[in-house]
Design a protein around this nucleic acid. Structure first.
Length: 645
RNA sequence: GCUGUUGUAGCUCAGGGGUAGAGCACUUCCUUGGUAAGGAAGAGGUCGAGAGUUCAAUUCUCUUCAACAGCUCCA
């Protein structure tokens, strides 16, 4: 009998009979591994443990601790779900059902049947029953013809459509129990490994992600090998909800929405405004240091301005409609972008190559008609403020300027402790070039420059096609929120188009007119979204320099309110923000209330403190730092109250 | 925009065909205190809005608005 050489991850090579299965290899390594094994990587491809290996290969056995193991587990769970659903709803049609980062989903067509929480529970129960049956997942190769026949007989047009797109000879089915599905695999050996099951939610999803197609029901679920792991996962979800900026924003009185004002139009409350203004101060200072010139432009602009920029053609009809003047019928748009205004500032006088780069910065509030279903707390709103700036430079300055902006973005992230961001190079969709303006050569150049700048700063980047702006590629900084949703914060964009459209020029050293290059950039992105992500990042425990209330003075009794007032005024003179809690409450109560409000410092004053002219300092979270005079406290901790340098 | 779920006091939520309830917050009084909720009393709601069914609707039906989850979109 012939043998195959199997290389294991530890570098050792073992011989097995040809056709050996992953499960047998696992068994030969150890009983424990065999029990834990879920799938196997064979020459870089993830396989079922039951699939015979017929050639020499390097392999790795995957368990629950590997991504490859989890994916097989959740992929199999999706099939288990489908089996349970079909058992309860005969005739249901299936779309796709992949594993995802946390669990799996399956898109299904249930016709007009309602499907809510009760139905989820019923299917969940059926799944548990079928898991206990411990049916093996059986892989089989089928011809395209057989595959089409099977699903034609079943009347599942979605699967038929999927099969049409596949190549004959590469089609496999998987069967467990009474359920057969078109599937590439891999799967776990049998349903029995799935012990804990939770169907999480139902949502709509267009077939193949296309708005014009029928909307299917997408059912999300998650499963685990142990009940305890499911409990832990659900607990983590609960904890994440506590960090949600919409919840904390309400509790900490940072911002609010009003139906009367309009959806997606945030109202910044006094405490939220302090937070936001501190961020602005931080950015203003950083920008002045980096050679930016602040400018201010109005909230509306002539429609013609956006026709010129191309924004009107691209977004005009789906946007807030123009405001028309009563007499002459002149049309104005609520400013959706600051860049056209800044282009016009550039044009106010002739520019020399010696003047460049010119960096125009503005905290510009813009209005965009976002789809109603997209509005989400502060992360997606219809009126928001960008920390926007446009750098007008010569072609030879693009890379250097781009790198400087990267540094600015990284300064922001570092100052706020954002360490798990991703840098995304957002490129054109090569299939859909008509979505963009400009010529290929300029796009290629811009895309190259962005990648080079990012590489030069050692940024790890992920390139994503189809994510560019219509006028140019971008470097986007993505951060995840408490619920693991990804948001774009900072963005840097190279633009060869708008300078042409606005006929911007400068006189070069050759005394000829040249077109400058524009870099759009916003390190925060929008203040609204940035604050939202910041709230979730620190769970409302803001760094001292940002905290709306940096301290609370807590007198032991009303007798010490006068002394408290003196301390309050002394601290305010030092530009430190806080309040005096002079309510008729006991100290325990005052401490609790300040703790709940996440006030960083509590200054407790009573008979002893008045006598010694001191304050007793308690930090948020409970640590007692002892008694200080104000001067002692300020010399020791004072610098933390100021903007970070 | 699409699919689904939800909408009761400032907040968190219970209830349910016969014109509403809790805790916290709020107001007043008592209490003058030492590191996460002192005590008592009081006030507060067109049950998201509109229409229909009914003797009677906050409850049932429809429409609409908004929020939430996801999809699509995102200058």
């Amino acid at each position: 009998m012939s043998v195959v050489k199997i290389s294991l991850p530890d570098g050792s090579v073992r011989e097995f009979p040809q056709g050996v299965k992953g499960s047998e290899i696992a068994q030969s390594i150890s009983e424990g591994l065999a029990r834990m094994a879920l799938s196997i990587e064979v020459n870089g491809e993830i396989w079922d443990l039951s699939r015979p290996i017929t050639t020499d290969a390097s392999i790795k056995i995957f368990t629950w601790n590997d991504k490859g193991g989890k994916y097989a587990f959740w992929h199999s769970s999706a099939h288990l779900f489908a089996e349970a659903l079909e058992a309860l709803y005969p005739g249901v049609k299936f779309g796709i059902g992949p594993p995802i980062e946390n669990g799996f989903y399956y898109d299904v067509d249930l016709g007009d049947q309602p499907f809510g929480d009760d139905e989820l529970l019923a299917v969940e129960k059926k799944m548990i029953e079928l898991a206990k049956a411990n049916n093996p997942f059986v892989r089989s190769d089928v011809s395209k013809k057989e595959a089409l026949e099977y699903f034609r007989a079943k009347g599942d047009e979605y699967k038929l459509e999927l099969i049409e797109g596949l190549q004959d000879g590469s089609i496999t089915f998987y069967k467990q129990g009474n359920f057969t599905d078109l599937c590439r695999g891999p799967h776990v050996p049998a349903t029995g490994v799935i012990k804990a099951i939770k169907l999480l939610s139902v949502a709509g999803a267009y077939w193949r992600g296309n708005e014009k197609n029928k909307m299917l029901k997408r059912i999300y679920g998650i499963t685990f090998p142990k009940a305890k792991e499911l409990e832990e996962y659900l607990h983590v979800l609960e904890e994440a909800k506590k960090r949600d900026h919409r919840k904390l924003g309400k509790e900490l009185e940072l911002f609010a929405f009003s139906e009367k004002v309009g959806m997606g139009l945030p109202l910044w409350l006094p405490k939220g405004t302090i937070l936001r203004e501190r961020l602005e101060q931080f950015m203003r200072r950083a920008q002045i240091r980096s050679g930016y010139d602040p400018v201010v432009t109005p909230h509306i602009g002539s429609k013609q301005l956006y026709v010129t920029s191309g924004h009107y053609e691209k977004y005009g009809k789906d946007s807030f409609q123009p405001i028309t003047t009563p007499d002459v019928g002149e049309e104005f748009l609520l400013k959706p972008m600051n860049c056209p205004h800044h282009c016009e500032i550039y044009k106010t006088k002739p520019r020399s190559y010696k003047d460049l780069p010119i960096r125009l910065a503005e905290f510009g509030t813009v209005y965009r008609y976002e789809q109603s279903g997209e509005l989400h707390g502060l992360t997606r709103v219809r009126g928001f403020t960008q920390d926007d700036a446009h750098i007008f430079c010569r072609p030879d300055q693009v890379k250097e300027e781009f790198i400087k902006v990267i540094d600015l973005v990284l300064l922001v992230f570092k100052s706020l402790g954002f360490d798990n961001y991703t840098a995304q190079v957002s490129l054109r969709d090569p299939e859909n070039k008509q979505k963009y303006i400009g010529e290929d050569a300029q796009w290629d150049k811009a895309e190259r420059e962005i990648q080079e700048a990012a590489d030069e700063r050692g940024l790890k980047t992920v390139a994503v096609q189809g994510e560019a702006a219509f006028y140019g590629p971008k470097l986007d900084f993505m951060v995840r929120d408490a619920l693991n949703r990804s948001w774009q914060l900072g963005t840097i964009q190279v633009d060869y188009q708008l300078p042409q459209r606005f006929e911007l020029e400068y006189v070069g050293s050759d005394n000829q007119k040249h077109t400058p290059v524009m870099i759009h950039r916003a390190p925060f992105g929008s203040l609204e979204r940035f604050v939202a992500v910041l709230i979730e990042h620190c769970a409302g425990n803001f760094p001292l320099w940002l905290a709306p209330e940096q301290f609370a003075i807590l007198p032991i009794s009303e007798k010490f309110n006068e002394y408290g007032k003196r301390i309050l005024n002394a601290l305010r003179d030092k530009d430190i923000r806080g309040l005096l809690d002079d309510r008729d409450e006991k100290i325990g109560r005052k401490i609790r209330d300040s703790e709940v409000k996440k006030v960083p410092y509590m200054f407790i004053i009573g008979e002893k403190e008045v006598a010694e002219n001191k304050i007793t300092v308690r930090k948020h979270g409970g640590s007692d730092l002892g008694a200080f005079t104000l001067d002692e406290f300020m010399s020791q901790f004072g610098s933390d109250f100021a903007l970070p340098s």
